[in-house]
Write a protein that binds this DNA or RNA. Structure first.
Lengths: 208, 208
DNA sequence: TTCTAAATACCCCATTTACGCGATTGACAT
DNA sequence: ATGTCAATCGCGTAAATGGGGTATTTAGAA
């Protein structure tokens, strides 16, 4: 736990929300908010040279989206932490935000006191998110259902490592013909018709 | 928000912790804890026929690990929610827990009042986790670094959808020869020598 | 300015793949 | 007992792939 003042910047196009947040944060002990931007372009132009620890980023911005802006800034300033602040909590927004480097994802109805707590959590290396958001993330780890038999899964894994018919056959003491048949069945079960597509689908569905 | 009493079961080998938790939970308004098991085997034997909403699951159990037990039970009772309760927060434990269907992941130093709040969150469809745990999950979404050019990434994505040389070439108005060259370069950059392996590696490294 | 990387295009050729067909065995469920 | 499914084995062929080259243009970095 560090005890210095946390320096915050806000990127938010709604004037009222931006000003309210700025006032609340800057008026709180241990927090400073001297920079607020109404759009991503101006934030990108300024933030990399400012002494900022945490950025509150709206997702719905005019021009570049908050996600794009975050991708850009995180690349230039990897030490900067980003909290996405948004009204929507659809899966795509959440995952894209996380993929471009956001550390937290909060809904705009989060109350000010909690918001300050969450900013501190991010500053201390945590990743605050509402438990609804967390649930969506967790669900992405679950396996839907696996139509493949054990043997098929085993073979598909070997294919993903770049092995061909013969190599797989030797590895598990089968005839290459049998391996072929298994692969055919895999394709049919996954509704694909090439190795590449099979592996792609299998990974996306967490079968391998 | 539902307002019925939440029925909880505990699986925990340490007698003191188990009894303390049972007393705390069962003594709280809106919570009931009539079932506690010292190991996974006895939990598996009983839980599927009990009127339980949420299971608190220790990970370090004698015999079957809490993760194994969760996998087993979640398969039989998909509507049951599991909160992992553990001292360790290593990446593997977290991911495995989520993969087998746990909804929350809390450290044992969570204080009792918070624990009750988290149980309710799970019951209401959320996924409580400490912000440290959340951070680890979030980090797993980040991209390490991408050796591929934009064009190469574009082509690799098409390959993952099962397209061949010609189809890719037609799609982006190139000669099939050029597509082939790009693919060769992709293989070389990823240190692979087949489409299958390239796609596997690319996904694992979040390049596509 | 010089060098490098990316994107583009082409050739040859051996190997691999995908798909068409058919078949047997054993296990497990109805 | 009958049926389905997984797992095993086989053949033939047309198409696709991967590896080896070479070469031009353009844009950006050193």
């Amino acid at each position: 736990m560090k005890n210095e003042t946390i320096h915050i910047a806000i990127v938010e196009d709604d004037n009222e929300i931006r000003q309210t947040l700025t006032l609340i944060i800057d008026g709180s002990k241990g927090f400073s908010c001297k920079y607020a931007f109404p759009d991503g372009e101006s934030a990108i132009a300024s933030i990399e040279n400012l002494p900022i620890d945490v950025v509150l980023m709206d997702i719905d911005l005019p021009g570049k989206s908050g996600i794009e802006v975050t991708r850009h800034l995180k690349q230039k300033c990897p030490q900067l932490d980003f909290i996405m602040l948004t009204v929507q909590s659809d899966d795509d927004s959440i995952f894209e935000s996380l993929c471009v480097g956001a550390s937290g994802y909060l809904l705009k109805d989060t109350n000010p006191a909690d918001l300050l707590v969450h900013i501190k959590e991010v500053y201390d290396g945590g990743s605050p998110m509402s438990s609804q958001v967390a649930r969506r993330i967790i669900n992405s780890f679950r396996i839907i259902d696996n139509p493949l038999s054990d043997r098929e899964t085993e073979i598909l894994k070997m294919l993903s490592k770049g092995m061909n018919y013969k190599e797989v056959a030797n590895e598990i003491f089968l005839s290459p013909h049998t391996v072929k048949t298994h692969i055919k069945n895999i394709y049919s079960k996954l509704h694909v018709n090439s190795r590449a597509e099979a592996i792609y689908k299998a990974i996306k569905q967490k079968l391998i």
